[in-house]
Simulated scan of single mutants.
Amino acid sequence: MLEINFRIKVFYVVAKELSFTKAARELFISQPAVSKHIQELETSIGQALFLRKGKGLVLTEAGHTLLDSAKVIMKEYALADYRLGLLRDQVVGQLIVGASTTLAQYIMPKLIAGFVKEYPDVRIKLFNGNTADVDRWLNDKRIGIGFVEGLPEDSSLKYSKLWDDSLVPVARPDHPIFKDATIKLDDLRRQEFIFREQGSGTNDIVFQRFKQFGIEIKELLNRVQMSSSESIKRYVELSDCIGIMSIHAVKDELERKDLRLVEVEGFSIHRHLYMVHLHGEVSGLPKLFMRYVEKNKSACDNYML
């Protein structure tokens, strides 16, 4: 495997995380070792790369300049590693993928497991955030390929539809809303909801759809927001809140009858799930993974209801 200058790699990770502690965790070295590498790099170029600000770090002008070059170096290194492997009839290297919550928790593990089985010498890191996080990571070149559930909004990115998804309202089986045989749209105005955090692609779709039905989000009672689908499901089971979640996320709970669909007359929310990357040619492992996902996306159809 091609080895890159380790100090550049340490700098790149610290610049991404703006934290010696997080960088040490990602690099599997001690925090003092990270500090030593940065100090030696700063000494060699004669300029400070970071300044301390509160408990965190900020890049200096020299740091920003070096980071621009480091991004190119890391990308070219990954591509060279991949191409050299092909000369040995091997597919090697590290692939960094970003996915928004629903995809990261319920779709990507199956695809990544199949990819690793087919290409056992590839190392994969999967970062989990919301749609806004994934879009930002792509623009910052922190990841090579992304998967999101929100509305395509960033003109610098290319979105390719992979799957259709349904967002469904769910509540605990003995929720008071089920006392009426028929649940109407106006009944939702009197309920409390739990929503995802700001920046969530799920929120974007849900809020837009409510508005189309004539319901403003500010009309609805919402005291709790959570970033984890698993946390939201657990909270819904223990409270009088209604959660609106991907059918992927609640399939098992519905089958076990831990949760129940809130079936509202004339109310439905559908969305697309996307693969996303920067405009321009995609090469190396990201391109290989894109092709694998396109070829095997039907393997995830059993997640659909």
Rank of each mutant, 00 (worst) to 15 (best):
N139Y: 09
N139H: 10
A113V: 07
Q105G: 02
T101I: 05
W137H: 09
M108D: 00
I96G: 01
N139R: 14
Y106W: 13
I107M: 13
L95D: 00
T101W: 00
F127I: 11
M108R: 00
A132N: 13
A113G: 14
K125I: 03
I112K: 04
A99R: 06
L126R: 04
L111E: 00
I143P: 03
I143E: 04
A104F: 05
R123H: 11
V122L: 14
D140K: 10
L138P: 01
L126Y: 12
R136C: 11
K117G: 08
Y119S: 03
G144V: 02
A104T: 03
L103W: 01
K110G: 10
N130V: 14
K141M: 15
R136H: 15
T131V: 06
K117P: 02
I112Y: 05
D133Y: 05
D135L: 02
G98M: 06
T102L: 03
R123V: 12
G98Q: 03
D135F: 10
A104L: 03
F127D: 05
L138D: 02
M108E: 01
I124E: 07
W137L: 11
K117D: 12
G114T: 09
E118A: 15
G98N: 01
S100N: 06
L95Y: 09
L95N: 00
D140E: 14
I107T: 13
M108I: 02
L126I: 10
I112W: 05
A132G: 11
K117W: 04
R136M: 10
I112F: 03
D140C: 04
A104M: 01
M108K: 05
A104P: 04
S100E: 09
K141C: 12
A99T: 09
I124F: 08
K125S: 09
A132F: 11
I107P: 02
R136A: 12
P109E: 15
Q105N: 11
G144P: 00
D135R: 08
K110E: 15
I143L: 11
I112C: 08
I107H: 07
D135T: 08
N128A: 03
G98R: 05
D121N: 11
T102C: 10
